[in-house]
Amino acid sequence: MKQLLLPALLLSTTLAAQAQRKPAPAKPATAPAPVAPAPVAPAPPTITAARAAGPGATVTIRGTVTNGPELGQLRFVQDKVAGLAVFSTTNSDLHTLVPGDSVQITGTLKNYNGLLEMDPVASVSKIASGRPVTVVEVPAAEMNTVFDDAYEGRLVRIKGVTSLATAAGTPAESLKGNTNYLLNGQKNNPVRIHVASTGEKGLVDKTPPTGTFDVVGSVSQFTQNGTGGYQILPRLSSDFVVAGGLPAIEGEPVPTNVYRNGFTVVFQTANPGTTKVEYGKTSALGTVVDLPAPTRLHTVEISNLEPNTSYYVRVSSTNAAGTSRSAAVPMLTDNKKKPVGR
């Protein structure tokens, strides 16, 4: 028995010692070293600040382009409060820019016959495309206010112009490139047509609208004595805006190619827009034809109608400015067969 007591005592002592031993405290987790924030590049100066720097200063501007190649190698860039001309004969990045491009451009300012412009251009960086362009709007009675250095380089819209005249005071007809015309015949308010604004959408060889219209263009300057010489540079024929830009249906829709089971509806709008024709046997109409392609001359063939029957027809057209709609007018089928080839 005495031989058994000693091992038991030793075992009991060991267990008691283990029970009293405390676990070692866990080492605290090492906190990650703070990461320094990436340095924020300073925003480029506003165009207003760049203009204040004056000729000879190298500046960086950020803004939205308001014209494309219809003004040749010249681009106007503006932000919400100011604009600046940018010109280069060699910078291909500049020449690819179109209206709505958001850009950052660096270059040196110079005075070109009164116009403050960036030339030479050191770098062009396109940031985005499709940005909205702010347009300063003034009634024609107050157009003198935008022929001023405060608006140089900005896109303006003169509303309610009634005529465009030659320097001799005669009505403008076929417009010529690199030629000045007078808004409402006023010599201090010229519009200059750029020789590069050609083609179907250009201004060269186009006839200005009759009646009342708006004129959109960038404010530029050309003077050899340092004062005055402000002029508006429209870009495309669409810058002569009739009816506020709405499609504006001209006259009533008319039926052509009438036969026993149908006819073709034709109408014209002052500005391009989509084509929509609604028709039916009553003024409630009920059937619709939609053509999404914008056009000024709208043509829709209506078929599967009943012979010798009157149908009500209403047309409408939509573009970015809104929708123009006619009243419903009656159109009549007859009892003739459809002409061959139609």
Rank of each mutant, 00 (worst) to 15 (best):
V81Q: 15
A82F: 05
A82G: 02
G83W: 04
A85C: 09
V86L: 04
F87S: 05
S88M: 02
T90P: 10
N91L: 00
S92E: 13
S92I: 09
D93V: 01
D93Y: 10
D93I: 02
L94H: 02
H95W: 08
H95P: 06
T96P: 11
T96K: 15
V98R: 11
V98W: 02
D101M: 08
S102F: 09
S102R: 15
V103A: 04
Q104G: 04
Q104F: 02
Q104M: 08
Q104V: 07
T106Q: 08
G107C: 05
L109S: 07
N111D: 14
N111G: 13
N111L: 12
N111T: 12
Y112F: 15
N113V: 11
G114H: 07
L115R: 04
L116N: 04
L116E: 03
L116M: 12
E117V: 09
M118R: 00
M118G: 04
D119Y: 12
P120G: 05
P120T: 04
V121N: 00
V121F: 00
V121E: 00
V121A: 00
V121M: 01
A122T: 13
V124T: 02
V124D: 02
V124Q: 01
S125I: 11
S125Y: 08
K126Q: 11
I127D: 07
S129Y: 01
G130Y: 07
R131Q: 15
R131V: 13
V133N: 10
V133L: 10
V133G: 11
T134K: 15
T134A: 15
V135G: 09
V135A: 11
V136D: 10
V136I: 14
E137D: 14
V138A: 03
P139T: 01
A140M: 05
A141G: 12
A141E: 14
A141L: 13
M143H: 10
M143I: 05
M143T: 07
N144K: 15
N144W: 14
N144G: 14
V146K: 11
D149S: 12
D149L: 08
D149P: 06
D149R: 11
Y151D: 00
Y151S: 01
Y151W: 06
Y151R: 00
E152T: 09
G153Y: 03
G153Q: 03
R154L: 06
L155Y: 07
L155P: 03
R157F: 05
R157T: 09
R157C: 10
I158D: 07
I158Q: 05
I158W: 00
K159G: 03
G160W: 04
